[in-house]
Simulated assay, not measured.
Amino acid sequence: MGSGRIIFLNGTSSSGKSSIARELLDVLDDGVYFHLSVDSFNAMRTKRELGPEELDAALRRTRMGFHRSIAAMAEVGNDVVVDHVLSEPWRLIDCLTVLPPEDVLLVGVHCLLDELVRREQARGDRPAGLAAHQYDLVHAHGDYDLECDSGAATPRECAQRIKEFLPHRPDPTAFTRLRRRHLGTAARIAVDALRERQTQKGDAVG
C-alpha cells in the first residue's frame, strides 16, 4: 500500500482555500480524496471559554494534531486536500517534520488585501483584521510548487489548474527544498530514520 498524495493549500483566512478544496474534490477523478481543514479541527474543540494561556496551548496542540492526522491519512494510502494557514513559522517546521516531502504539492493561494478585507466583512464570522494580520506571514517562506490567484480566478478554475499540474510535480518538491533549508542535517536524518522504521514496521505487519 503506497502513500497518498497531499495537496497542501496555504493562504490567509478568506483567501478561498476551502472553496478551492471543495472544487478539487469534485474535479479530481484519479483517486479518493479527503478534505482536511484546520477550521474543522478548531470546530471540534470544547466551547468552554478558555483563558489566553490555556487557549494558546490548546490551539498549538490542535495544529500539531492536525498535522499528524494529515500524515496518518496519507500514510495508509489516502489522497488528501489540506486547507491550512501557515501564519506562524513553527507550523511550517512541524509540517516539514511530519509530512513526507516528496508526496506534498504545496500550493500558495493568493488574493489582494482589499478583496480579502471585503470577503472577511461579507462573511461576518471572522475577527476583523484577521486576514490583514496574516497577509505578510503566511507566504513568508517564499517557495511553492504552484500558486493561484483566487481574486483573478474562480475556485473552479484554480482547482482545474491544480489538477492539470498534479501529474507534473517538480523534483525536488517545494516541501523537499524547504525541509533542506529549515531543518538541520541531524534533524533530517532523525526524521528519515523514524519514517523508515515506521515503513519497515508496516511491511512486517503486512
Rank of each mutant, 00 (worst) to 15 (best):
R63T: 11
G65M: 01
M44Y: 12
R60F: 01
H35E: 13
R61E: 13
D39P: 01
G51V: 03
A57E: 12
D29S: 15
D29L: 03
K47R: 08
V38N: 10
L36K: 01
S40K: 04
L28W: 07
F41T: 08
M44I: 10
E53V: 06
G31T: 11
V32I: 04
G51Y: 03
E49C: 02
M64T: 09
L50T: 06
T46I: 00
S37D: 13
F34G: 12
G65H: 07
M44K: 05
D30Y: 06
R60V: 10
V32M: 03
F34D: 12
T46V: 05
T62I: 01
F34S: 10
F41P: 06
K47F: 05
N42S: 13
L55C: 08
H67V: 09
Y33K: 11
G31C: 12
I70R: 00
A57W: 08
L50C: 00
T46Y: 05
I70N: 03
I70W: 03
D39K: 02
D29V: 11
G51M: 00
Y33R: 11
H35G: 03
T62L: 13
S69G: 06
R68F: 00
R48Y: 13
V38A: 02
G31W: 06
F41L: 09
R68C: 07
G31Q: 12
E54A: 13
D39H: 02
L36V: 11
R45A: 05
A43Q: 12
E49R: 09
A43N: 14
R60H: 15
L59R: 14
E53L: 07
R61I: 07
L50D: 09
A43C: 04
L55M: 15
A43V: 00
F41R: 01
L36R: 03
L36M: 12
E53N: 09
D30L: 01
P52M: 00
V32A: 10
K47T: 05
L59C: 12
R63G: 04
D56H: 07
